[in-house]
Design a protein around this nucleic acid. Structure first.
Lengths: 206, 206
DNA sequence: ACACAAATGGACTCGCGGGTCCAGAATGCC
DNA sequence: GGCATTCTGGACCCGCGAGTCCATTTGTGT
């Protein structure tokens, strides 16, 4: 694993992760066999174990990192600038646009995590860390808004970030069940409404 | 299956469903084998197939109905009277109390649904129906509030119910990941804040 | 050109878990 | 009590899918 990796090898590895990520998103970890993955990438099982000595579990971990980056990237540059109200709106739109354009419904990371909690707590913890990193961006933004007076003095950035993040993921869950983007839109709009209810003195009422 | 069922038989069937529900909640459908279930109930596999000819899939369906009733019951009587602001607060408290007292974190129905979507769309649809019935209670309450002037005229009960329901389930997802009740509390409080932002003329401001 | 490492294919093992079968024990009905 | 039906135990079958092994090909450095 720490051994060298030729360009060709890296490409193959990437193909596997990408295809596996798609399949897992569509059918879940339990519903995706290594054979399925091989079939979709014109590789053989020995390749998978060549690049992921830890087997399926390690592959899942790689998928998680891959999807995590993908999701975070889709929210940039808004994610780093959530210290103004306008950015929040832009962020909302970016999130919706991203999940609408996804080949399948639901959140790749959230679904993965909930599935693994029962069977692979160790991997689930990794996933939870990704989630928390994501949530952290929201909290940082809110913390800056509090400092700049855009939030009321008694507002709690941690709790607000948590509730916003929860709304987002609830929206994604329902989005997956109902195969519609509507729940996500409703959830995010609701969350932003709750956020605005904590607006502070420096906020300009439009 | 449509054949008669002696009291003893019904008891055994009940034991299986209950134990299976617990195991599935803790380890997921994929992580729970029929042998596990038998071990925990001092029954044998032939019993499972005797009472659930459709095998694991049918058992899962029974678990779903069981958990659905359990969850809905935990929210009564509030669930039927969500047409006043005070009831919403009581409902919030009941939901939190219920999930806090549960032996494992997370929503039994939500987790089941997301897991099955990829592998058993038919069963997942049943689950989704349970979810929608649940959400329906919220919408009915809001609709009555609109009619009685407790909500603003331009408020949309459907969307509001959707966003509240999403917040609830997002809270449950995070609750499971973080093994803490905090996210659920934050999510529900946020959702109620958003709801109150749609209050109408007849609402008494406290 | 040679040697060595990495990349690939595919056959193989093996345990787990869903599902089947049948014989015997318990129970309800008259 | 006797008959029918239901209930129960456990042995068995079988396929699927994770993981292993080795032989072959492709590439890379000197």
């Amino acid at each position: 694993m720490a051994t060298t990796l030729t360009p060709k090898g890296a490409a193959t590895r990437g193909r596997i992760v990408e295809a596996a990520a798609d399949l897992v998103l569509a059918r879940g970890v339990g519903g995706t066999s290594l054979d399925d993955i091989c079939a979709g990438t014109s590789t053989s099982k020995s390749q998978v174990f060549h690049y992921f000595p830890g087997g399926k579990s390690e592959l899942v971990s790689a998928i998680a990192s891959f999807q995590s980056e993908r999701v975070l990237d889709a929210q940039r540059p808004f994610l780093d600038e959530l210290d103004r109200w306008e950015t929040w709106q832009g962020w909302r739109d970016a999130v919706i646009a991203h999940y609408r354009s996804q080949p399948h419904w639901g959140c790749p990371i959230g679904a993965l995590t909930t599935e693994l909690i029962g069977s692979e707590p160790a991997r689930a913890a990794e996933l939870a860390a990704h989630m928390d990193r994501w949530r952290g961006y929201l909290e940082v933004g809110l913390r800056r808004m509090l400092a700049s007076g855009l939030l009321a003095d008694d507002a709690d950035p941690h709790t607000l970030a948590l509730s916003t993040f929860a709304a987002l993921h609830g929206g994604l869950v329902l989005t997956q069940m109902m195969e519609s983007i509507e729940p996500l839109e409703a959830a995010l709009d609701g969350a932003l409404t709750a956020l605005r209810a904590a607006a502070g003195p420096r906020t300009q009422l439009s």
